[in-house]
């Protein structure tokens, strides 16, 4: 056998081995999702059997109805709350970060470098440090929610949508990402836009945003998923069930359906499905967005 053929065979073998290992690994990674889906159709007796059955013996789609109607408020309500939080929060965030990114990329003004440094520096501040003071800030927000000028008397912004959404609206990393994206737009566009009588805001709105749509989309999807999956902050700053998002509700379900894994899994599926659908719709774009966010910025 010639050496090149041996090499070829070896490569074929290693490729086959790669396939086997990768598929086995992928099945292991996907397994919790499969278990979740199959489990969501098992009744309480079957889900508590040992050794467990893989394929449900009898199918119980009523688990989904039960999960939907779970106390203290229906799952629909929590899904609605999460949607409101994620949509408004993401929209405002994209807006605020676009404006800032544009200014840092294109406009020249006093103190720009210092301010940009300031913005970048916030990426180093861990959540744990801002958690407690931000809670107090929300609670003692002056002149709102029955508070006086010094933040005493009422509950400030505590237990409002604003409290959930407000602190995360800026996102230094998004500003950075958008600035980088805006800087890649060729200058000729600006010259052409000027001839057409475009001001700097019109240029941003009419020319820049369509050209940097992939980055804007990445920022938006990141923001949406982060808010949909977020738990700690909404848990802390809310009390009413009419405001709390699904992930907080899941913590009640864990207690409510302690051993009724079928219903618990049905709830998990209902909560996770929107994200999976969203991700599958734009996965190629999203993954390249993650890469550019991680590597190039």
């Amino acid at each position: 056998m010639s050496p090149s053929l041996a090499q070829y065979n070896r490569r074929q073998f290693s490729s086959a081995l790669s396939y086997v290992l990768l598929i086995a690994g992928a099945l292991l990674v996907i397994f919790p999702f499969i278990w979740m889906l199959l489990g969501s159709f098992k009744n309480i007796e079957e889900s508590n059997r040992f050794p467990p059955t893989i394929w449900p013996e009898s199918w119980h789609p009523e688990n989904y109805a039960q999960a939907w109607n779970a106390p203290p408020s229906t799952l629909g309500r929590y899904l609605l709350n999460s949607t409101v939080i994620a949509v408004t929060g993401t929209t405002l965030q994209v807006l605020i970060c676009t404006l800032a990114g544009y200014a840092f990329a294109m406009l020249r003004f006093r103190g720009r470098e210092v301010l940009f440094l300031l913005v970048l520096a916030t990426t180093m501040i861990p959540n744990e440090v801002t958690l407690i003071p931000n809670f107090v800030t929300i609670r003692r927000f002056p002149l709102l929610g029955g508070n006086d000028l010094f933040g005493a008397g009422g509950s400030g912004l505590y237990d409002t949508y604003i409290a959930i959404v407000l602190p995360g609206l800026a996102g230094a990393f998004n500003v950075f990402l958008l600035r980088q994206a805006f800087m890649t737009v060729p200058h000729e566009y600006w010259e052409a836009a000027q001839i057409d009588g475009c001001g700097s805001f019109g240029y941003l709105w009419r020319v820049m945003t369509p050209l940097t749509l992939p980055t804007l989309l990445t920022v938006a999807v990141f923001g949406f998923i982060g808010r949909w999956n977020g738990l700690l902050w909404p848990l802390i700053v809310t009390r009413s069930e009419s405001l709390r998002p699904v992930q907080v509700a899941m913590t009640y379900y864990q207690t409510e359906f302690l051993t009724d894994y079928g219903t618990l899994m049905a709830a998990s599926i209902l909560v996770t499905l929107p994200i999976i659908v969203l991700f599958l719709l734009i996965q190629r774009q999203f993954i390249s967005g993650v890469v550019s966010a991680g590597l190039k910025g």
Partner: peptide, 18 residues
């Protein structure tokens, strides 16, 4: 500065001040 003002206010209030 007007463009960055919203982002700046939020970052100062909820990142630096804390």
């Amino acid at each position: 500065v007007i463009y960055i003002l919203p982002a700046l206010i939020i970052l100062i209030l909820f990142e630096f001040w804390p």
